[in-house]
Nucleic acid binder design. Structure first.
Lengths: 241, 241
DNA sequence: TCTGTTTATTGGTACGGACCTATGATTTGG
DNA sequence: CCAAATCATAGGTCCGTACCAATAAACAGA
């Protein structure tokens, strides 16, 4: 039934335990000890620990030295360290998200953008411009820039079928490892005011994001202009000691 | 010379390698293989792997299966998954940050705040209100709320000597594990406009943060109002798989 | 009754070995 | 000369074992 038989044991255990915990256990309830789990499943404690470490990292459980391992509070609706998803947030609010592609072009970047994407000024860059709406109310304008050299065969057609991030990963083997974001408040410019159907000079939130792959090469730069009266940007992460 | 002799081997190795890498190695340079390091230091490969995992998690190195382990790009000025520090950001910009305590009180919260901090409506809450300036220019107003039960002996005096987070950790054994933030743009209200010395109705950035301990109990709620014309909020994190 | 000690349990650290898989260089066969 | 097979090396997974350190309950002695 499971296609991927080469998946490591501990990964299977992560999925299995995650499902079990979510369905059958309560917050702060103690789970079996590492040794007990290992014995029952006839696997080594190493494998169990590796699985539990994953679950802890993702916020499902927490360990207390000398006491045991416990189920975390379920109040983790948004997954930890996940890239912000407009679609997901709107669906949680019971609204219907849509995105309309306004622009798709390949061009030569200016100095500032080139340095953001770590490309030479003569290298090409892909620009994507979207208007995002919720229940047909314009919410934000999103401009994404990609280094052409890393995504040379990206097409509008592909984008209409899958999300940009899944295309990045499956088609171009580029997955996001580190994300750097900045947020600022400003007053909207007239062009954007028209698109968002708000008054000129309304407050707006500008979120800029640069995403890096495992080699710390920038693979995406995105700037969002969101309506200040409608939009809240959420972010959740694990703080390392 | 090292006071803490009980510190685990792999932690010592982390510090040692981090220092070595930063001082002697270049971006994308290959480091010794796990087996080689283990052999040279006469420790097990397990310990080396554990140390390298830490270094990878913190963004100093990256591994490539079959090839080796390499030094990441140094362009990680702000540590990853760190809580935003106004002080640090301003110092990086060459400005002198200051914070002035405007208010310190213990009170009974309203329903909304009580639910944010997971306390009963009859439980007490501590309020801290700060004005933060950079080169004596007002930048943001920060209001922090703490559950009184977790920090009963917190004093203004202690806050003048150490940062809130270090007091939380050392005095009350509460360290931050998960952080949830939201950002929105709005127009400033008249009270805050006076404090920040901007015009009524100027754009401002509102950042709200809830911090949780390892047990996923909220230990802090903070709301910041920052000048839209001056202030940029930064955040950087590792994206898991 | 109370306090200090012992003991069992739990997660944390560390070892050494084995094998798998991805990668790249070397060798081999055509 | 080139493509396929081989091989060495790298990180990734998994095992069994041992001991350390934090916790809490059981126990012992005053």
């Amino acid at each position: 039934m499971n296609e991927n038989t080469t998946e490591p044991k501990y990964q299977k255990l992560v999925k299995q335990m995650k499902a079990y915990i979510q369905e059958n256990m309560k917050t702060n309830q103690k789970i079996l000890s590492e040794r007990e789990i290992a014995q029952r499943l006839s696997i080594s404690r190493y494998t169990v620990r590796k699985a539990l470490d994953e679950l802890e990292k993702k916020g499902y459980i927490y360990k207390v030295h000398g006491k045991g391992t416990f189920v975390s509070e379920k109040s983790v609706p948004t997954a930890l360290n996940e890239i912000y998803s407009f679609t997901e947030q709107m669906e949680q609010l019971g609204k219907k998200p849509k995105m309309e592609l306004l622009e798709f072009k390949v061009f030569i970047p200016n100095q500032e953008l080139a340095s953001k994407l770590h490309v030479a000024t003569q290298d090409k860059v892909i620009k994507l411009k979207y208007l995002r709406t919720a229940d047909d109310v314009p919410m934000m304008i999103e401009e994404t820039y990609l280094p052409y050299s890393k995504f040379p065969t990206l097409t509008v057609d592909a984008l209409s079928k899958n999300s940009l991030y899944s295309i990045m990963k499956t088609e171009f083997n580029q997955s996001i490892h580190v994300v750097s974001e900045s947020m600022r408040a400003s007053l909207i410019s007239s062009n954007e005011a028209k698109l968002l159907k708000v008054e000129d000079g309304s407050p707006c939130l500008n979120v800029r994001r640069t995403s890096f792959n495992k080699l710390n090469e920038p693979i995406e730069f995105t700037s969002c202009i969101a309506r200040g009266d409608q939009f809240v940007y959420n972010c959740k992460y694990i703080h390392q000691d």
